[in-house]
Computed example of a mutant assay.
Amino acid sequence: MQDGTFLSPGHLQETCTGNANVRDCPTRQLLDLIGDKWSVLILLLLGREETRFSRLKQRIEGISQKMLSQTLRSLERDGLVTRHAVATVPVTVSYRIAPLGRELIAALQLMIDWAETRMSDVAEAQRAFDQRASGAATRFP
């Protein structure tokens, strides 16, 4: 097996040959899909219920209309969400999670559970690091 090749239980194909920077690496492709600031949050909200664009915008603090639109379009392109438009004045647009998106949420659930239970430990580690770093900065001007 080559360096950079990973095997997962039940799936013995290579996931990356050489390094994870290769564009056709499935792991890299998945991280590109969900690694931005908003995608997983949008998927989680749509996993609960079909939601109109304006409601998503209200529920996601800090996201711009442009970024929400771009992220939804990308998720739709990737087959993770579906868009439904009803010919009203103005047009009513809603989004729902697609079966592929629901599978992705299930795959991410371990990471989500970990974050919900361990983020306080991460925050404590960050505080300790910041204290050590600020102490080192004051000792060595």
Rank of each mutant, 00 (worst) to 15 (best):
G101L: 01
L100T: 04
S94G: 09
R83Q: 14
V91M: 13
V86T: 15
E103G: 01
H84A: 06
R83A: 07
P90L: 04
T92A: 13
Y95E: 06
R96V: 02
I105D: 08
V89N: 15
A98M: 02
P90A: 06
M111Y: 07
V93E: 11
V93Y: 07
V89D: 15
R96E: 11
A87D: 12
Q109T: 09
E103Q: 12
M111H: 11
G101C: 03
S94V: 05
R102V: 00
V89G: 10
T88H: 12
A98D: 03
L104Y: 05
E103N: 07
T82W: 11
A106K: 12
A106Q: 10
T82A: 09
P90T: 09
E103V: 05
H84L: 13
V89Y: 13
Y95L: 04
Y95K: 08
T92C: 08
Y95C: 05
G101D: 01
V86G: 10
M111D: 12
P90C: 05
I97C: 09
G101A: 02
L100K: 13
T92S: 14
L110N: 11
I105Q: 07
A85H: 07
M111S: 14
M111T: 13
P99A: 01
M111P: 02
P90E: 10
R102G: 00
Q109Y: 03
V86H: 14
A107K: 08
I105V: 10
V91G: 04
V93F: 02
L110M: 09
T82G: 07
Q109D: 09
